[in-house]
């Protein structure tokens, strides 16, 4: 009798711990998906895109409208990527390229772009848009269940991060773009078209933001301010990442996002947020060059 009871309690604890792991992974993967585009643009160009949240929002609306028009969800995601990549290239060509090397000016310009996009979205789409909703289906461990879509997002975030990493490490474009950020003059003098590379990078980062919007729109209803929810943490992850931008951002998000999610589960959501920002501040205090400051690696 006593044995049986013990066993039951143990299995409950096991379910709870496993499920906590799953919840934490899902929170990290959402942040990671929302951060990648920003990380690429900052890491490869030294530009902080303050309109990143609005890029995510626009991508969300592209997926939303094309799904509602009958396009399959996966294809709609592709559309979001392509649409935002084109949009990003245009923005880079018209505005960003004139401001390279002027960090504060690009901050101001992208912030302005964000404001215009936000109010534009309110005027165009209105404040209420019906969401597409999450697909049915749940993953269960013991008495706990979560939406299976969040499980899928975990896999997607891993695949997406690996793809971005490989593009910058293995392809010719990737090598050239890293050369362009590390030593622009040297890169230019050996014939790397740095301007063209920058346009491609900004476009690629924007496309990733669009894809993120598409991936997130089932769980987070599309509203003009939906991107704002993710960007503050994405910015902090990118800033604390340091020179190895992709691996640094992944490390930060797993570490800080993980601890914050777990404290959210144990205590309250507010404490989870406090923990996130406190750890970030501590990291920047003790590793002023970011977590990857002393690392030897490619990205």
């Amino acid at each position: 009798m006593i044995k049986g009871e013990n066993k039951k309690e143990q299995s409950m604890d096991f379910a709870q711990i496993t499920f906590t792991g799953l919840t934490t992974l899902s929170s990290i993967s959402i942040l990671l998906i929302a951060t990648l585009g920003l990380a690429v643009i900052f890491g490869m160009m030294g530009v902080i895109n303050l309109a990143h949240g609005e890029f995510i929002m626009l991508g969300a609306f592209v997926t939303l409208f094309s799904t509602q028009a009958g396009v399959p969800f996966v294809l709609s995601l592709g559309l979001s990527f392509v649409a935002l990549a084109i949009y990003g290239a245009v923005i880079e060509y018209i505005i960003i390229r004139h401001l390279y090397g002027r960090l504060f000016d690009t901050l101001l310009a992208t912030w302005g772009i964000g404001l215009v996009m936000y109010q534009g979205a309110i005027l165009l789409f209105g404040s209420y848009t019906s969401g597409i909703g999450l697909p049915a289906g749940t993953i269960g461990i013991g008495k706990y269940t979560m939406s299976s879509y969040f499980g899928i997002l975990i896999l997607v975030s891993v695949i997406l991060t690996a793809t971005v990493y490989l593009i910058f490490v293995k392809t010719k474009y990737g090598v050239m773009s890293r050369a362009a950020i590390q030593n622009p003059q040297m890169a230019g003098s050996i014939g790397i078209p740095t301007k063209k590379i920058n346009t491609i990078t900004f476009s690629f980062g924007s496309g990733l933001a669009g894809l993120a919007g598409g991936l997130l729109v089932p769980a987070f209803p599309a509203t003009p301010d939906m991107g704002v929810a993710f960007v503050s943490k994405a910015f902090l992850a990118v800033v604390t990442a340091g020179p190895m931008i992709i691996s640094g951002a992944v490390t930060t998000l797993i570490g800080v996002g993980g601890v914050s999610s777990i404290s959210g589960i144990i205590f309250t959501s507010v404490i989870g947020d406090v923990v996130f920002f406190t750890i970030t501040i501590l990291i920047l205090r003790f590793f002023p060059t970011g977590v990857s400051g002393g690392w030897h690696g490619k990205l």
């Binding site: 706990y144 987070f220 929810a229 959501s269 947020d273």
Partner: peptide
């Protein structure tokens, strides 16, 4: 919930 929050996994657990 913080006003900016939109991922509610922790709360749901």
């Amino acid at each position: 919930l913080p006003v900016s929050q939109s991922d509610f996994s922790s709360t749901l657990q």
